[in-house]
Design a protein around this nucleic acid. Structure first.
Lengths: 255, 255
DNA sequence: TATGATAACATGTCTAGACAAGTAGATCAA
DNA sequence: TTGATCTACTTGTCTAGACATGTTATCATA
């Protein structure tokens, strides 16, 4: 049982408000991210984990299902559960957000806020009003940012927020390197749950090309869609333009 | 309990080899696809379903989790489970495949096989060899198809198959409108499970532009990646080029 | 008329089992 | 040596509950 060594220094807090299956998921995720579990490695079996942590096997399975959805592991019935090969691919769409994602990969990244303002123009930003379920006449907060990795611009992101969520960012003005998702989750205590995004290929016009430091007419990915909170309230409408040469989109689909 | 009317004529076969949660999932999916459950409608609660079908609530929840993953429903804790708004968006990536997806939307679609042949050229198709886990020297079957919807070309798809899977398509030559996924699942009895795809924006060159009937330099989506069977064997390496003006990619992400 | 408690009902998490079925390795027989 | 069988171990499905917690509507109270 090499799992004993592997799992030492890990433990569950049964009195925590954090569900047990989330704790197990995060322990396994940490073992993978830290390299203690390498791609191809078999992770401890469901029985081993349920015995080790003194929890039900169904709870362990709940953790596994999460990790499958996130692409960390795959299961071979009758054989075991194995760590997937890490992907070099950037996931545009992780709800964890840009900063933590890039940091995990070891890249220094930062942002520049081009513009942050209150807007009240249904005609110009109809998609955002619709996406957030707001009526014409209501005010939104609009944030334009350029994302950099190691001094190279990667993306232009425009976020539209309902006034009650975004007004705290107007004064004082949101810092260049602040994380929007961190602000929403940590400061406002709104837990994010679901993002409903659409992606299309497109071409860079002159303004976009300048900001992203690419040639006019270069391929880009256009993304737009709404992010929802845990209780299904729309929290953000995002429009993103991503450099086609730097970004790719990885999707794992399970039937 | 309007659910009684809704669920009449539905039943589970407890002696079937098809798991109960799959049967429940498919009943609900059918109710949604047939329009008996409209977007925004509340579906019967977990307790109602478990009572109605005389199964455990956990089994009902397993069905719900599937439908959430597939984007059909969303759950509001304490409130209920609701049908999502249908998306007009084409999902590039559904494992069900192109034909059934388009048929569901009511479009007539067909394909044209440009080319189907055995290849043995690691140098030209290195990505495919790697994706399928094959060694140089092994033969693959390569299928080039153009996809049409209502006479408009939408996509060019090149599938690479291991010889044992693809050889049945060489002679007789695969029919223009045959479904590859149907062939693999129904004829070869290989159940597909997971697809690992990468998408990037690109530009159409002259050859692509001609086939897709668009201007050279128009934006396209390039996709490549491997599809795996239920027991994690690579089954297909797919390279697709999709018209940017017709296709968009919809992704629902759940944290 | 407001407000606050409460009840009914929804989903979220978790248990401690059960049996089924797929896989791999050991063992035994031809 | 080869092949079949057995066994131990894995994941898949399912049960019949339990208590926690979020939502809504109702109803009693100030």
């Amino acid at each position: 049982m090499s799992s004993e060594r592997l799992l030492q220094n890990t433990h569950l807090d049964k009195s925590s408000y954090i569900p047990l299956y989330i704790q197990v998921r995060d322990i396994l995720k940490e073992l993978i991210n830290s390299g203690k579990l390498q791609p191809g490695d078999q992770i401890p079996s469901e029985n081993e984990l349920s015995t080790e942590y003194n929890i039900s096997r169904m709870t362990v399975r709940q953790a596994s299902q999460e990790l499958i959805r996130e692409g960390y592991i795959s299961i071979k019935r009758g054989e075991g559960t194995f760590v997937n090969a890490a992907s070099h691919t950037q996931m545009l769409l992780k709800l964890e957000g840009f900063s933590s994602e890039m940091a995990k990969l070891g890249y220094r990244n930062h942002s520049r806020v081009l513009n942050i303002e209150m807007v009240e123009a249904f005609d110009s930003f109809g998609m955002a009003y619709t996406g957030l379920g707001k009526e014409p006449g209501e005010a939104l907060v609009r944030i334009c940012r350029v994302r950099y990795v190691e001094e190279t611009p990667f993306a232009i992101e425009t976020s539209f927020l309902p006034l009650d969520i975004g007004q705290g960012l107007l004064n004082p003005r949101m810092a260049d390197d602040a994380s929007l998702y961190n602000y929403i989750e940590k400061d406002l205590h709104i837990r994010l749950s679901r993002a409903d995004h659409v992606i299309q290929p497109g071409l860079a016009d002159q303004e976009i090309a300048n900001l992203l430091e690419i040639a006019k007419g270069s391929p880009v990915l256009n993304l737009h869609g709404t992010t929802f909170s845990m209780n299904n309230q729309p929290v953000e409408y995002l429009e993103g333009i991503y450099r086609g040469d730097k970004y790719e989109l990885k999707v794992v689909i399970t039937k």
